Computed example of a mutant assay.
Amino acid sequence: MKKILIIIGVLALIYFVATLTIPPYIEQQRNPVKTAPPYQVSTEAQALYNRLDFIADLHCDALLWGRDLTERGTRGQVDFPRMREANVALEMFTIVSKSPAGQNMQSNSSEAFDNITPLTIAKGESPANWFSLINRTLSQSRQLKEFAEEDGQTIFVRDKADLQQLLEARKSNPKVIGAMLGIEGAHALEGSLANLDKVIEAGVRMIGLTHFFDNELGGSAHGETLAGLTDFGKEVVRKMNENGIFVDLAHCSPAIVDDVLNMSTAPVIVSHTGVQGILDSQRNLSDTQIRKIAAQGGIIGIAFFDGAVGTPELPNIIASIKHVRDLVGIEYVALGSDYDGSVAVPFDVTGLPLLVDGLMKAGFTEAEIKAVMGENVKRFFLENLR
C-alpha cells in the first residue's frame, strides 16, 4: 500500500509540473509574434491613433491557452493589460473546442486526432472537460466571465445595454474594456439544440458554424465534402436568428455561405478572413461573397496572419481592407486579427498603431481609419445586438 501511495504521489507531482510547463511551452510555439514590442510609428500616426474613440477586434482565441488574462503575459498576443495599453475597447474572445491533427487549409477529417484533448488534460482542467466539447466550451465561457469579474474594469458584453454601459464608462475611464464571447466551430454543440440554449445562457453571442473540418451543421472550407447546411444546421441558424446570436461565416464552405445568406434574417459576421482578391485561398472570401455579405448589412474582419493575407503581412492586411472598401464600401470592413489562434502575427495587440500608420500611408482618410479600427464594429453591434 505504501508503494502504491508513493507511485500515486509521484504521478500526481509529475502531472502538476506538467500543468505548469506544457501549456505555456505549447502556446509559446503556436502563437509567436514576429516583431516584439515596443513598436514605433510616426508622430502623425500616433496622434491619430490617440484620437480613436473605439478600437475593436472581432476574433481572438486567448481563452484556449489557460493564461490569466487579467495579468500581462510574457507570451501570446492578447490580454486585458495589453488591450488597455493599446486602448482597445472591445475584444471578441472565441472558444476553440477541437482542432484536428495535421490541420491544414486544404482538407481535414472530422475523425482526425483532436489536438485540444491533450492540451485540455495538460492544463489541469476537470476530467469532465477532457472528452466533452460542450463542457470545454462552457468552461471557457465561465472563465471569461470570471476574468471580467476579477479584473473589475472589464464589462462582459452580452446585449446592447452592456455595450451602451461600456461606451458610457469609457467616457470617464478609458481603462474600462469590453469582452464578448464567440465560438469557433459549432461542433461544440455536439449536435444538440439544447446545447445551443446552454451556450446562449453562458453569454455566447457569435457562433462560427464550422472550423477546420465538417460537422453536424455542414461543410468546412477545409473539410472533405464542401457541403452546404444540413437540416440540423438550418435549425441552428434559425434559432440563432430568433435569439439574436450572430452567425460567423469564417471557415465555412462556399455552399454554407450561400445557404446562410439565403435564409438568415439577420446580418452575418465573418470574424477573421482574407479576400481572394489579395490571396487566392479557399479560406478567403470571393468578391461575389463580399458583395452578398455587404448587401445584407454584414461585417468582415480582416485577419493578420499569412495564411489569410499572405506575406509581408502588414501591407497585405492594408491591401485586403482596401479591397473590401473599394468593392463595397468602408462601412463593411473591420479588424479580425485571429490573435492567439495558433498563428504567427507581425505584431501583438500593442502594435495596432502600426496598422494606422500603414493605412495613413496608403491614403485612407481619418474617418475611414476610425471606421476600420472600431467604429464599424460599434455601429454594427448597436444596430444588431439585442
Rank of each mutant, 00 (worst) to 15 (best):
Q282N: 15
G218W: 00
G298W: 02
S99T: 12
V96I: 14
V309D: 05
A295K: 12
A295Q: 13
C60V: 13
E190Y: 01
E111V: 06
Y49S: 04
G351P: 02
I7Q: 06
A56R: 01
L335H: 07
A56V: 00
M373L: 13
K175Y: 07
P127L: 12
P32S: 07
I8G: 12
F147T: 07
I290V: 14
D68W: 11
T350L: 00
G178N: 02
S320I: 01
R238V: 11
T117M: 13
H272A: 08
I55E: 04
T350V: 13
P24S: 05
L359N: 07
S97T: 15
F54V: 03
L48I: 10
A319L: 10
E235C: 11
K322A: 14
N173L: 02
Y15Q: 12
N376R: 06
V176P: 06
N243D: 11
N215A: 01
T265S: 15
T74E: 15
G310S: 10
V96Q: 08
I14N: 09
L355S: 01
L63H: 02
S271G: 07
L327D: 01
E331C: 06
G66E: 06
N376H: 00
Y49D: 09
D340A: 01
G277E: 10
N173F: 02
F80T: 08
I6N: 10
K175A: 15
I14S: 11
L166H: 01
G274C: 06
D357W: 04
A227F: 05
I183Y: 07
T154S: 13
L209E: 00
I245A: 03
D162Q: 02
E242I: 07
P38D: 10
H272L: 03
G9A: 08
L314N: 05
I256S: 00
A266I: 09
E146W: 11
N173V: 06
L354V: 10
Q296T: 12
D57T: 06
K292E: 15
N50K: 14
I200C: 02
T120I: 05
G208S: 09
R72N: 11
E146F: 09
S320L: 08
R142H: 13
V270A: 05
R170V: 09
F232Q: 05
I6Q: 12
F380Y: 12
T35M: 11
Q29W: 12
H211N: 04
S109E: 05
A319K: 12
I302M: 04
E85C: 09
L385G: 01
D68V: 08
G228C: 07
S192A: 13
V333F: 02
A47W: 08
T365L: 11
A303M: 03
R238M: 08
R205A: 00
F113E: 12
G182D: 04
V157W: 00
Y339W: 14
L382A: 09
V275H: 04
P312L: 09
